[in-house]
Amino acid sequence: MIEEQKLIEIIPSELVAKVRDMFVEQYRLVQIGCTKLPDRIEINYSFDKNYQFINYRLILANDKVEVPSVSSVYWNALFYENEIHDLFGLNIVGIVLDFKGTFYETKEKYAFATCPPPIEPVIKTTPVVNIKEKGKPQ
């Protein structure tokens, strides 16, 4: 029952060509998603055609690497790319409509640029209790 999911790793220089091939083959761009890992950054370009799921994984060594935009091929990619720029602080060049960091006006810039901290129990803050409902509700 588990669907088959193809995963292909690629490097930045082949990205646009690969994506263009998918476009020519009339694949639908399902999503572009980014993952920050301690040692690298992955960007997933997912495509679908007749329930065939193909994922290209672009691997970046760090967030300084320039990523070419695929929005000139898939117009809708611009939304994903702007999002990635705003959350991960990646340098994506050539987005057809570049929001220049105003896609999400977050309190914290590039919130996802930091990698998850080493696993440890989450310290919970002490809640401020306004109403004390002891036992039963009033």
Binding site: T35, L37, F79
Partner: peptide
Amino acid sequence: ERMRVRTPTFANIPA
């Protein structure tokens, strides 16, 4: 390590 959600509306906004 990562949870990413791409929802249908996000995909429909370009259209």
